[in-house]
Design a binder for these strands. Structure first.
Lengths: 139, 139
DNA sequence: GCTTTTCTGCAAAAGGGTTGCAAGAAGTAT
DNA sequence: ATACTTCTTGCAACCCTTTTGCAGAAAAGC
């Protein structure tokens, strides 16, 4: 999953921990550092949380992973190549829905045209009520 | 600024601390709990941070204040009646710009029509590069 | 004023993330 | 293969923000 070369090419050393962190992020989709650590521990039980944090940061610096803010708590990490959708986070059931980035295209363009603001719509959650919960509460 | 009755009407007791917290939120615009505490301390030096937290929560429960997530750190609080704008947060200079909620109207409608998702666009920041910083970095 | 109930301050703790340091591995040159 | 340099790791301590338990203080109601 994590090819040896892609890390070396970025000037990073190839350590088992680093490879496993990258692999975990790719497999998990959106994962908190804690979840990444847990996944990695399946292979490397001894890995330390701070190593996970440091590697996530390192991998983010070289552009292999990205983080987004989905809720009140901490960040969640994605493989950079998979961050192609909006996150629709439900305030009630905490579910995370996806929508294509294009959904926001007009909005992003308006902000750019009117305010010169270049929006990254994936970095923060789109917050609200999912269809299930909004049906439930209107009944 | 905080009328005695509006707290009583919500079933809350009228304490100096509570009034001052509400007043501070109204005066500050977007404020972190820490900033609210600091503001309150001008009048009531001894107020405890936990009292501020508890009052913010209480005031939010009765709908007088709201919180939003503007960045990597904690929440910021607003008077409920003033939360009528989007927050355009710059990833580089950390500035917080405003844009009217209507800017997002089409986007919100699309999410509602296509996904049944009822978006609250004010609860999370709109993240990106402000015009200043995007000019700077393209030069 | 007296009683009940809610609030406040304090101290401790929880949660999430970071940092200094010494030991250990990766890469590089010999 | 070996020695050397540099980067990483694990560990423990720590920081910052927020939450909680509790006893005493203050509101609201009588």
């Amino acid at each position: 999953m994590a090819k040896p070369n892609e890390l070396r090419e970025k000037g990073l050393r190839l350590t088992p921990q680093r490879e496993l962190v990258l692999q975990a992020v790719r497999q998990l989709g959106h994962a908190t550092p804690e979840e990444v650590a847990e996944k990695v521990r399946a292979t490397q039980p001894g890995i330390n949380l701070s190593t996970v944090y440091r590697n996530l940061e390192t991998l983010e610096n070289v552009g292999l992973v990205l983080h987004t803010h989905l809720g009140h708590g901490g960040a969640t990490y994605h493989a950079a190549e998979e961050l192609t959708h909006l996150h629709l986070v439900c305030s009630e059931c905490q579910s995370i829905g996806d929508a294509p980035i294009e959904t926001a295209a007009n909005f992003v363009n308006t902000l750019s045209d009117d305010y010169g603001f270049k929006t990254d719509v994936t970095h923060f959650a789109i917050y609200g009520l999912c269809s299930k919960c909004s049906n439930k509460s209107s009944k």
